[in-house]
């Protein structure tokens, strides 16, 4: 009881701070300096039509590299925590067979879902979407395969290879930027191209595709590890 009272008291304090923030909030009428820089310069400098993509991949590319690293660490720790002390049960447990509908449907749908993921990250510099969204969609396709066939252990080797190869190429392109262009992760490695074309915006489509593959592999590895945990 006293715990609940203390919690409510604390929340009332936070709520009063939030109220103060909310009632004194004035929406900006003009873009601030940073946003104006991005809005004015993206089309000419980067050549991407989606300004969010230009920020994520080029202007703030180092943050994205850090984010992908954090995600990699998460996947590794989840694997470590769950693999520890896992007993190898050889008997295929008495799982109820999945329905015919799910088995056939997943065989038909999983490649299409993965194709949609590839489409989303290949067009990341033109339309809403990009590596993170595309990677999550690819992981949803892997999830469907996992649900349809729980007995088949998904090959961790394939997932790990995709993950490390795309990570290696991502860092490789970033370092090539120092040598051939303006700096680390500079997207002017490749020609800027025509605004709005599929092959434009320098190295952004390439980098975002690698991010998409890496993120998709990391999410898939987290899902596969969690789905292979033992029944307690």
């Amino acid at each position: 009881m006293i715990r609940k009272f203390a919690a409510i008291l604390l929340l009332a304090g936070i709520a009063s701070i939030f109220m103060g923030l909310l009632f004194t909030y004035e929406p900006d009428a003009e873009l601030n300096t940073t946003a104006r820089y991005y809005a004015e310069r993206t089309a000419a400098d980067i050549g991407a039509t989606n300004i969010v993509t230009a920020i994520v991949v080029t202007y703030r590319g180092l943050d994205t590299l850090g984010e992908v690293t954090v995600l990699f660490l998460t996947a590794a720790i989840v694997g470590l925590v769950l693999a520890h002390g896992r007993r190898r049960t050889s008997d295929k447990r008495r799982l109820a067979p999945v329905g015919e509908l799910l088995a056939t449907g997943s065989r038909f749908l999983a490649p299409l879902i993965i194709l949609l993921g590839v489409y989303v990250f290949a067009n990341g510099h033109l339309t809403p979407g990009g590596g993170f969204q595309g990677g999550a969609i690819i992981a949803s396709g892997v999830l469907l395969i996992l649900l349809a066939d729980p007995c088949r252990c998904l090959s961790h080797r394939v997932i790990d290879t995709v993950e490390s190869v795309s990570g290696l190429f991502y860092v490789g392109i970033a370092i090539l930027g120092i040598v051939l262009a303006g700096g680390f992760l500079d997207s002017h490695l490749l020609p800027r191209g025509e605004l709005g074309a599929l092959f434009s915006a320098g190295a952004i489509p390439l980098i975002y595709a690698l991010i998409g593959l890496k993120v998709g592999a990391e999410f898939s590895s987290i899902l596969a590890h969690l789905s292979e945990t033992e029944e307690l």
């Binding site: 969010v52 994520v56 999410f219």
Partner: peptide, 27 residues
């Protein structure tokens, strides 16, 4: 563009936050 679009910086931030949030939940 200057007079038609909203601020893109918070969107890029939130994009990162959602992905990391899912990682934290998994952990």
């Amino acid at each position: 563009a200057l007079s038609r679009i909203i601020d893109p910086v918070p969107q890029a931030l939130v994009l990162t936050a959602i992905v990391i949030g899912m990682g934290i939940t998994a952990l």
